[in-house]
Simulated assay, not measured.
Amino acid sequence: MPEVIFPGPEGRLEGRYHPQKAKDAPIAIVLHPHPQFGGTMNNRLVYNLHYTFYNMGFTVLRFNFRGVGRSLGEYDQGVGELSDAASALDYLQTLNPNSKHCWVAGFSFGAWIGMQLLMRRPEITGFISVSPPANMYDFSFLAPCPASGLIINGTADRVAPPQDTQLLVEKLHEQKGITITHQEIEGSGHFFEDEHMDTLQSNVETYVRRRLTETTR
């Protein structure tokens, strides 16, 4: 998989880009967890999400937020990281102008950034939000949420408690015109340890394949 360097708001950003041969393949970006708590694009869950999308025929980009790995800049409380994500999507779209479907997937802090990106980019057609930290960050900007997607978390998550995720889902369910699918993986913690990772990947693949089938009918 080629390593890529592309321009970001504060200088270069480091990523991993995995293209498909089909010029009109759907595209996806995958966003990593909190930079100040060891989050990088090589996080196990981010890596597995990347390949889950690739194996479904997506052209995929994951990258390091500013100040992580070889990406320039410093942590910016989520504000700059959102700009980084927008730059990553710009880069991906420039390389794939014929793509008809655009997805964003994020884990924990990356889920929060991904949902904000969703609000700013109407071309995003679907999202995967894994362990969104609704107890730590304000998600009220999702009014209304512009696209349907999957929110998935573990019932034993001590970092982002399930009850907070449930409250977020209930608020989103009140909106018309979109469908928020919520799945809880029994016994899983925040990081989907052991066999829970396989369950996560399987659930994501089933959901995304169903959505793609619905849009091609």
Rank of each mutant, 00 (worst) to 15 (best):
G38E: 08
E184F: 07
H32E: 04
T199V: 09
Q77L: 04
A143K: 15
K23V: 14
T52L: 15
N55T: 01
L92K: 15
P162D: 06
Q175T: 09
I124E: 06
M115Q: 13
A156G: 08
G69E: 08
Y207E: 10
P132V: 07
H173P: 01
F139S: 04
K171R: 12
M136P: 04
E205M: 15
P132A: 05
S129E: 05
V130Q: 05
E123H: 06
L92P: 11
I180A: 10
A25P: 12
Y207P: 06
S87V: 07
K100I: 03
A86Y: 02
R66Q: 01
R217D: 07
R211P: 00
N48T: 02
V30H: 14
K100Y: 05
D194M: 10
F53T: 03
T52N: 14
P132E: 00
Q175M: 10
E205N: 10
G149D: 08
M115P: 00
E214A: 04
G38I: 05
F127L: 02
E195T: 13
G189Y: 15
M56D: 09
D164M: 14
I128H: 01
D84A: 03
G106A: 04
S131E: 11
T40E: 08
N48R: 14
A156C: 03
L31E: 07
F6M: 10
A134C: 15
P146N: 02
G106F: 06
V60Y: 06
V104P: 12
T59Q: 11
A85N: 07
L61E: 02
N64A: 06
M119H: 12
V46S: 03
F6Y: 15
S140R: 03
W112E: 02
W112T: 03
Q163I: 10
S87F: 10
A160V: 08
A147H: 05
V130F: 10
T213R: 11
A88G: 07
Y75Q: 03
D24F: 11
E123W: 01
F191P: 00
I180P: 07
